[in-house]
Nucleic acid binder design. Sequence first.
DNA 1: GTCAATCAGATTGTCGACAATCTAGCAAGA
DNA 2: TCTTGCTAGATTGTCGACAATCTGATTGAC
Lengths: 227, 227
Amino acid sequence: MSRTEFEPIVDTTRRAEIVGQLRRAILTGKLSPGQKVNELKISKEMRVSRAPLREAVRELVQDGLLTNIPYAGAYVINVVPKDIEDAYALHHVLEDFAIDLVWPLRDQRFAAELDRRHVQVKEATRALDTTRQIETALQLHSVIYEWSDNALLLDTWLRLARRLQMYFALHQQARDEPVPDVDMHEDYVRLLKGKDIAAAKQHAREHIDWNFAELVAYAESLATKRK
Amino acid sequence: MSRTEFEPIVDTTRRAEIVGQLRRAILTGKLSPGQKVNELKISKEMRVSRAPLREAVRELVQDGLLTNIPYAGAYVINVVPKDIEDAYALHHVLEDFAIDLVWPLRDQRFAAELDRRHVQVKEATRALDTTRQIETALQLHSVIYEWSDNALLLDTWLRLARRLQMYFALHQQARDEPVPDVDMHEDYVRLLKGKDIAAAKQHAREHIDWNFAELVAYAESLATKRK
DNA sequence: GTCAATCAGATTGTCGACAATCTAGCAAGA
DNA sequence: TCTTGCTAGATTGTCGACAATCTGATTGAC
């Protein structure tokens, strides 16, 4: 029996590639909220036929990043303050649950993984790469979900995370300000490795909320502009 | 301003119809876990081309009812005990959250809707229509999510509900026994209309678990059989 | 001028055919 | 006997073309 473990072969279909590109385009604001996804135009630009593109669109619709109206087209979802509030409320609940589940499962590898991703966040922050910073920060949060040993919870989180990534990206892109403090996640990581679950939960709660008000305000400004 | 409210036009694409049929087939066990979804065969049976069928499959893959392996095909998801446990754990958390949210929003129409769906469950139960009984019972549970005014939570619940519907249906189909008591949801509905939120939560928790052990045992029997 | 009917252009939905890939079975060689 | 290479058949992935539908502008009647 071989000891080496091989990675599964990566999806090598055009469809998967297209999904990736479209998702990135949405999450980085290259496709802005409300914008229509023109199949013919995009398929030409990507040099693929409409079939795999359409299948990719179905995936993103199911993902919640696009909405579809039959015979009218697919549109990037809009962002209104209520969406942000809903997402944050759900995030609180899921994070709490994930910490409960992960607490007895934490081991040395868990701590190592937390540190590894924390480093990535700090690197992206120092490099002033906001897009990557958002991405790595969410990946850091993903650790507890990945280790909570509940596939459904992880799946639910990943869906939510994509929404959050979109909100953050839009916001950052709009204000174009210096990135937040490098040590933002210091306490978060430390408490997750510690012994006080109540403190960890409490801090996670506050940590999640750090830019909540700002994001809602941004969504409101969007709504007013749209009028 | 018109006072009458019109329903949105139903999706009138073949794709939507196909999604419905496939979903029903999976949720009723017509397509059993692990079974392959042969595109050519099904498209012929449905008298449609493969294009809309494939798009429908993408949706169901994203929904979590199918898994896809490139160039190999789409398969109905398997059911293992851990899946049931994960689903129930998440259900507890979501139900708790939903009750919190819905509590201050309850009004007379909320109570009426609870009653209406409760009646449907009882009718299905009396008619010995197990499939419909499962469907209506989940729709009864959906009330609190629909009224909780959190679109993301509702979306998350609907995903979970489909998984649960599949588990229940498989189980029922396997044991082929008389359906449970007609008054099963009596307390659930009564407490949701009452004033004691703690009692409502507590009962919801127990109510959710009523057939948990049975379902896990069934999944285990499946797993052993598969060997 | 207002409103309804009509029409052209653009876009989405669907189809049938072809290309790429996988699987199972068989044959050849060590 | 086991492994390797090959082949044929089936299935999935992709393509280009056509049909159905929507949108906006134009026309014409009142």
